[in-house]
Write a protein that binds this DNA or RNA. Structure first.
Lengths: 215, 215
DNA sequence: TAGATTGTTAATCGATTAACAATC
DNA sequence: TAGATTGTTAATCGATTAACAATC
């Protein structure tokens, strides 16, 4: 229906939008009918101007003095992120991290549903993890193609991550969420999102160091 | 011994340093004696100028035509991040994510060692997870103080995250790595690092949306 | 009206990108 | 010497911060 042009946003803005969304949903549960950028900013410890700009990019229109009507602003963020409908995902690699992600209930509120999980180990294939039967990795590309799966989550050992990525691409997967410390090579139409725990730790470590030496 | 001033770096640089470090360690294993910014950049898909600037900030000095002596550059990065000695950490909340992190072997190569894990559930306390006995959360602050633990990893349910953070601060913990979707309130001398899976998913989702609508 | 908030325009800051001299 | 690479200086780009008019 809406033929409107999808605007593009910078990465920092995109990363903050889910924080707003989570808070706004909670405020809605509490019965609030409007949300002002000021309140959102204070609640999340952000600058109000940042929040206002971020919300503006979603196309939502606020009312001076009141803020944004709750349903409109929530829908605007969901629409902007493509979270109005959840996208199907496959997960490959049922180790520690894979199990944790399979058990995490929150993804559906963030636009993604893990519809199947795969592994290569005969001991794991066929077992159930968090209610999902683990399938043979060999069957993954064909199944991805048939089900038009868009997102692939990689939680295997670093050494086989590239092979798994290749298989996902063969299956028509367009977005890869990589939890391994491997730099993947993919065609440029495939979108890569790397989850790098070491990077977070580096930021934390460096700040601890500075803080400690400030005495 | 070295009285030198610790330089400060921007967040983007800090996040890239672990990628360099991992690659350089692998190159060293392979017997390489020098590493040039050019090679590192190509291997990781980054701009060579970015790599050069990032490496410069660690204080390492390269040789024109050759690059950086392997041992010197590795040590410079480790030193800069405070990863020459591993820092002790406590983990609180042995659910899906907590278990995954306890099972992850890689943290010690990134400056952190989880020396104990805690939970509040009587069914879990006393059991072993990945070889570590789970302790009662009630004992955590005193133990943190006694052991001078610096880092606290929070993997509990969102609703109790603030309580756990408070207990950690009571125990003298200076850096908190928060895996829950809760905005924590902490004194300003405490360093917060939030791990927000929804943010990564937002970036991926938005790009999928743009790519898809480009047809 | 008075006042809080939106939305926009301008200024600042920091990161990335570009250009190039110095060096082994 | 020739050539690849470092290290530095300048230019560009984008994000954050500041200022302020418009509005209900």
């Amino acid at each position: 229906m809406s033929q409107m042009e999808q605007k593009t946003a910078g990465v920092p803005t995109l990363k903050r939008l889910p924080l707003y969304l989570r808070l706004l949903r909670r405020m809605k549960e509490n019965g609030d009918e409007y949300a002002s950028g000021t309140v959102v900013a204070k609640e999340l410890g952000l600058d109000p101007i940042v929040v206002r700009k971020d919300l503006a990019i979603t196309g939502a229109v606020g009312r001076p003095r009141l803020g944004f009507p709750m349903d409109e602003i929530i829908e605007a963020i969901e629409e902007f992120l493509g979270w109005s409908n959840t996208t199907d995902a496959f997960l490959v690699g049922v180790g520690n991290m894979g199990r944790a992600l399979l058990g995490y209930q929150g993804f559906e509120q963030h636009g993604m549903r893990i519809v199947a999980a795969f592994d290569s180990s005969p001991e794991i294939i066929g077992t159930k993890v968090h209610g999902k039967t683990i399938l043979d990795i060999e069957t993954m590309p064909a199944l991805a193609k048939r089900m038009h799966v868009q997102i692939g989550v990689i939680t295997v050992t670093a050494s086989v991550a590239q092979d798994v990525a290749n298989a996902m691409i063969e299956g028509g997967i367009r977005g890869i969420w990589n939890f391994t410390p491997t730099s993947l090579d993919v065609p440029k139409h495939v979108i890569l999102q790397r989850e790098e725990l070491a990077s977070s730790l580096a930021v934390l470590s460096h700040r601890l160091l500075l803080e400690g030496s400030a005495d």
